[in-house]
């Protein structure tokens, strides 16, 4: 897990928000939170559902961690994070179970796994524990959006090429099944990363 390009501790509001989307994009730059991305990006439905769940947990735990940070001594901060995060994860777990059994079936074990999602713990430790509630809230939103964009693009690509249909309309009648299978996930991310790296390299050359 490499972390680079972290903002200053007292980043103003918009910077905190944009960081999560661009420079500090969890999946493509910081390389955290990978596990769910590969497993869940097999369709847009899953991608959106997962993003919402992660957003709920991330924003919620960021806010609470920031709220209690003054009363939380450093030595017990990890257990505290874990308790807070797992509470939000359990809430999301049961809400999805009750109101969207289809999503529950698709996401499966990855819903409770949000609790060890490096994104959530990572932002809690690196940002929410050291910043105000307002900034932590914005950071949560920004990171969630960054996560959502990546997940959505991958989900779109994999669904389009792997199933051949979008919104019920068939686009490719002979889709490449491999795209929705495990290898396809790896390939898609590899390609996206390659493109991003290429773009970054070009930018730094100019």
């Amino acid at each position: 897990m490499s972390k680079s390009n972290k903002p200053g501790i007292s980043a103003p509001g918009t910077a905190a928000f944009l960081y999560g989307v661009l420079k500090g994009n969890p999946v493509l730059v910081l390389m955290i939170g990978l596990c769910p991305v590969l497993a869940v990006s097999t369709s847009i439905f899953n991608a959106v559902g997962m993003s919402i769940a992660v957003a709920f947990v991330l924003i919620g735990s960021n806010v609470i961690i920031s709220l209690v940070r003054k009363r939380t001594p450093g030595e017990i901060r990890i257990p505290v994070f874990i308790i807070i995060i797992s509470t939000f994860v359990t809430i999301v777990d049961y809400v999805i179970r009750a109101y969207s059994p289809e999503l529950y079936r698709q996401l499966g074990v990855f819903i409770p796994l949000i609790v060890v999602n490096c994104i959530v713990i990572g932002r809690g430790e690196a940002f929410a524990y050291k910043n105000t509630v307002k900034l932590s809230f914005l950071d949560g939103i920004g990171t969630s959006i960054g996560f959502f964009i990546v997940l959505f693009v991958i989900g779109l690509l994999r669904q389009l090429f792997g199933k051949g249909e979008l919104l019920g309309k068939v686009i490719f009648s002979k889709p490449a099944l491999i795209m929705i299978l495990p290898p396809g996930g790896f390939i898609t991310i590899g390609v996206l990363m390659g493109i991003l790296t290429y773009y970054n390299l070009k930018k730094s050359k100019v």
């Binding site: 001594p73 017990i76 505290v80 308790i83 807070i84 797992s86 509470t87 359990t90 809430i91």
Partner: peptide, 13 residues
């Protein structure tokens, strides 16, 4: 502190 937090968490859950 931990017990307080746990009780709160367990209660809301």
């Amino acid at each position: 502190r931990l017990t307080l937090l746990c009780s709160f968490a367990a209660g809301s859950l």
